[in-house]
Design a binder for these strands. Sequence first.
DNA 1: GTCTATATGTAGATAGAC
DNA 2: GTCTATCTACATATAGAC
Lengths: 192, 192
Amino acid sequence: MGTKGENNRTRIIEAADQLFYKHGYNQTSFSDIADITGIPRGNFYYYFKTKDDILAAVVETRVKQYREALVTCDNASDNPGKRLHAFLDIMAGSEDSVVDTGCPIGSLCVELAKDTEALQTKSREVFVLLRDWMSRQFEEIGLVDANDKAMDLLSRMQGTALMACTFKDSAYLHRSVGDLKNWINNLVLSES
Amino acid sequence: MGTKGENNRTRIIEAADQLFYKHGYNQTSFSDIADITGIPRGNFYYYFKTKDDILAAVVETRVKQYREALVTCDNASDNPGKRLHAFLDIMAGSEDSVVDTGCPIGSLCVELAKDTEALQTKSREVFVLLRDWMSRQFEEIGLVDANDKAMDLLSRMQGTALMACTFKDSAYLHRSVGDLKNWINNLVLSES
DNA sequence: GTCTATATGTAGATAGAC
DNA sequence: GTCTATCTACATATAGAC
């Protein structure tokens, strides 16, 4: 638990996080991470037993980051509809990287769906966090099928990111986010 | 252009098609294809100059197959709404593989979004075919924003496949396909 | 056209000096 | 805790006999 060691560990996770997003998990090598961090390949095994362990650490970091982002959304408004809008704005705000590389969560799950079950379960964790938070917002709106609506919103956001990235179309991304905000508004109206 | 040679070429493409879907492009090796076909690794270079060339051939095969599937949808009904339903039934009909491995088109595009631009352009071709066909259906329905609606339908189908696969949830897949059919029906009604 | 043998590079992982 | 050197496996790709 030395201070220097934890610092190196964090730097490995941060570099891996970016590389897994930009190039994918399987296409990221220890050498790539070594080049960015300046930490030699062989040293990684002092901090992580396997490459899968690095992935687990990356996912846990992402869960923490999204948890914080959701707290910001929670504080954005008393209105659950507006809180969901705030979450949509996160995606719209990272327009450039979404069009270039897709959604970091979705693309990881798609890649690892073709890998071991252990990696699938791990990569799914961020989605579980988001789905449950969305479900709570729809519940507060008064919808009886809040969990279904959470799946629908997550699904449509993922479809939006996938198409925007595939067609390199930021205009579609913004139109679609606007449509989703209207969809949420209509759900709020139907319950009031 | 010998008969035997064309046969081997076709068998390589078919095996690669399945493996690219089940394990991904980057995770499929020449040895994997050799194991399935019984054709030795070294022989592949008689038919294809590089691995990327195999991918191109696989995508072209898929374009042909989907083109035929769209002809079947065209023949299914005089009603463009019903033709779109017929296309949705293709996805619902391959429920097991979609939940297990995701959408073959979408997952390839997601993977190759992190690769060279040449592979991105190639993998996108199937989506272009489907988008243009859907756009023609929405046009016939009478919608002025037919191309936008085509993007929306493709987007929502991709989101549906991604979430159904990530959460291993075939019930969600079917509910979502049903919702999309209702969405199409409402668009038809709004124009009649 | 078909096959074996091999070249060349790089992957994840380990051993052991300091 | 940190680093170099190295092991083993396997990737794409090539050369050349048959």
